[in-house]
């Protein structure tokens, strides 16, 4: 198992955000994490990245516990995190942002830049531009490209479609699928459940810091609760 969380509890002060969460991501799969605002999706990703430390429970990467590994070493172990709201370095150029993704290992920079530009040709047109002036979609492409610069085995994606036009969302999801085809596992947090379940193999549904439902995408898509709560379908019988 690439990544496993077992009974993880996380609290912000007195407020418990995750209450005994368990989930797994295997090599090369796309797993999605669904849930309403405040369900604990972002908290889960931030805990995996080591930005938050669990109060109880265990995280393992390749079977090795993560508790003693500082957050800044996680990228060197093959985990890349595309944070919520993209968080590109606003005063750096597109190129510098991408180089930040390769901060720990600059051996393959040239090659990896080419790979990112092949995925997102738009970024190569904007290479010298200050990133704070990019459009939201371009910033999301940059944030994903930056995460790929470290040659990750697992990418954590936090709401990549947030605030983007449908056309751009489609591009982003196509790229996620493409990254995955190269063997990179993806843990995808999304509000856009329909798109997420279309590319993911499995999913978990979170409510107030707990997994309330999990299974293959097909089974989740056919689940009434999911359809009603996350796919916006009206299941009340029409007269």
């Amino acid at each position: 198992m690439l990544l496993s969380l077992t009974d993880v509890e996380v609290a912000y002060g007195a407020v418990t955000a995750l209450r005994g969460l368990s989930l797994e991501v295997d090599e090369g799969e796309i797993v999605t994490l669904l849930g309403a605002n405040g369900a604990g999706k972002t908290t889960t990703l931030r805990t995996i990245s080591g930005l938050l430390r669990p109060r109880a429970g265990e995280l393992r990467l390749d079977g090795r516990p993560l508790s003693t590994i500082p957050a800044h070493d996680l990228v060197a172990l093959g985990v890349s995190h595309v944070p919520e709201g993209r968080r590109v370095f606003p005063s750096m150029s597109v190129r510098e942002n991408l180089l930040m993704g390769a901060y720990r290992d600059r051996r393959h920079t040239r090659e990896d830049l080419d790979r990112v530009f092949a995925l997102f040709p738009r970024l190569s047109e904007r290479i010298g531009q200050v990133s704070g002036t990019l459009s939201g979609g371009e910033q999301q492409m940059l944030a994903i490209g930056r995460a790929l610069m470290s040659r990750p085995r697992l990418v954590l994606l936090d709401e990549p479609s947030m605030g983007l036009a449908p056309m751009v969302v489609q591009t982003i999801f196509e790229v996620i699928a493409e990254i995955n085809r190269d063997g990179v596992a993806v843990l995808l947090v999304e509000q856009n459940a329909a798109s997420a379940l279309r590319i993911a193999g499995r999913g978990y549904v979170l409510e107030t810091g707990e997994v309330v439902l999990s299974g293959t995408s097909a089974s989740l898509l056919s689940d009434d609760r999911v359809r009603q709560a996350y796919l916006g379908e009206d299941l009340t019988p029409t007269p």
Binding site: S49, L51, Y103
Partner: peptide, 8 residues
């Protein structure tokens, strides 16, 4: 925070 995610 994001710098940490980049391995800084």
């Amino acid at each position: 925070d994001t710098a940490v995610l980049m391995g800084v």
